[in-house]
Design a protein around this nucleic acid. Structure first.
Lengths: 277, 277
DNA sequence: CGCCTATTTGATCTGATTCAAACAATGTGG
DNA sequence: CCACATTGTTTGAATCAGATCAAATAGGCG
């Protein structure tokens, strides 16, 4: 983790984060609690995958969680870490990514309230990529032990986590299609559709609007495009009248049009509840 | 499945498969057995993830399997299927892919003996992509029921499958890095390194050589490149003296050179045994 | 041999990158 | 509350990696 600004500053591969960290002036606030917000978020997320019994819900509420506020552009976990806890996003927006030796970055996924970003750590001892915040986030840390106990007592919840992992992989595949075989405009439209549906599921939309807390450069790192090109494609989508994007707020003005441009078919998200389409 | 050539011929989206299927002159041979070869392959594969006890090994040997020979360019499972069994590759080479509405194809992963290509089907009722053979394959079909029983009796094996799924996702991420942020030459070199390591693990290499049963067009569909460009990049790698590729045989003449070009670091494969590097 | 598919080569085009600079928004300290 | 610093967005111009189109060559096989 990037608690200490100097830790990343000494790592030459982390130049972009070093800059980010050097802006840090105060320490993170570390608040320990059972995080009612955290379990509420997690329950809501799990219920997008399948129903929970009241018994299962209260078991999730019993998870041990330590909630902390993490500033923007800080890592929650790093490649090579051997974590003993999982990170649940309670508020904010985070991403999984990898930095290449030439300084380029590839973002693999975006994460929103309710997402556990490193469930992987429960089964593979060492992480193969980083997870970082894109804005200030409230993050609940859940000991593996506590999760293992939950799953042992409630095997159905274990299966929900497995399904969540598989949906994660399905999202990777959808991104691969965009990067490998689709023009930038379609790829970006598809991403916006995906994010809208996922935000909608966890109650983070207002009408046709949601907070897209990523810069155009960060969108480029996710789509495999340059900042400049992202900007031009955003303008194309604006000109097509399908979206409005300003100051971190994305409004979908014409869902059908956007979905058509992105050839968006939400099947791959394996929604349990009806999607936004 | 594409047992019947006409089934795909009627699907307008399947033009490339229709061509492939129309070549079919004889029916598949369907041989039912307990497939000693299948369980041997599966055991070997699982042991690349973690050790198995002799008890666990014989439990895997007890899995119900029906082995069949499937011709090249046929689907094992299709998007929208609700499979009741898993497909284990016993011999051959297969891939997961998706066809876009403009006829373009994106291949998500390659699969070799020992791989179960649709473990996903055990937890998500409906498949979101296709799986097809690239050459004639021997495939063992294992009922979900039988696998569920195995996992219930041997939870450690269940955890191995979970780890395998997570490694699968790690491979997706590695490909995403290549597609989004690396030049074609590095991306291709990385793929060749990955395939070599994976073939080596399951005993399918001879010295520095393995069968790469994919055309340059298929490699392009995996890398997000055109056939023509694949050809030119292959030639660059040949000229660099790192590989020989002819008639489906890939020889790595200079592992260090190839790994350097592809910035290949096998950590993401989470190998239990020592890799080929 | 003749057919089919895969590989290779050449020429041209284009989507996207890179470089450079202006502009807008937001925040900070005096 | 303004001056200034910082980050993010936008625009323009030049360039390039890789796509596309077209056609030749080479293997593999009945």
């Amino acid at each position: 983790m990037c608690d200490d600004p100097s830790s990343s500053a000494t790592d030459p591969r982390r130049w972009w984060l070093r800059d980010a960290c050097s802006r840090l002036t105060t320490r993170e606030s570390a608040v320990s609690s059972l995080s009612a917000a955290g379990s509420r978020r997690l329950i809501r997320k799990l219920e997008t995958i399948d129903d929970l019994s009241s018994d299962e819900r209260s078991a999730v509420e019993g998870l041990a969680m330590t909630e902390r506020r993490i500033r923007a552009d800080h890592d929650l976990v790093r490649e090579g870490d051997r974590p003993s806890q999982c990170c649940l996003i309670v508020e904010g927006f985070a991403c999984r990514y990898r930095i290449l030796d030439d300084g380029k970055r590839q973002i693999f996924s975006f994460h929103m309230p309710g997402d556990i970003v490193d469930i992987q750590g429960m089964h593979l001892p060492v992480l193969d990529h980083d997870v970082g915040t894109l804005v200030t986030c409230d993050v609940a840390f859940i000991p593996h032990q506590s999760l293992n106990h939950l799953i042992a007592e409630h095997p159905r919840i274990g299966r929900l986590f497995w399904r969540d992992t598989l949906i994660d992989a399905a999202v990777f595949r959808a991104w691969m299609v965009g990067m490998g075989r689709r023009p930038a405009k379609a790829q970006m439209a598809h991403l916006f559709c995906e994010l809208f549906v996922r935000f909608e599921l966890v109650g983070e939309t207002k009408a046709n609007t949601f907070q897209l807390s990523a810069t155009q450069g960060e969108l480029g790192d996710a789509l495999g495009l340059s900042t400049v090109h992202v900007n031009r494609v955003v303008q194309e989508l604006r000109a097509a009248g399908v979206i409005t994007l300003a100051r971190g707020t994305l409004t979908i003005d014409d869902w059908d049009g956007l979905a058509e441009i992105g050839r968006f078919d939400p099947n791959y998200l394996h929604l349990h509840r009806r999607g936004a389409a």
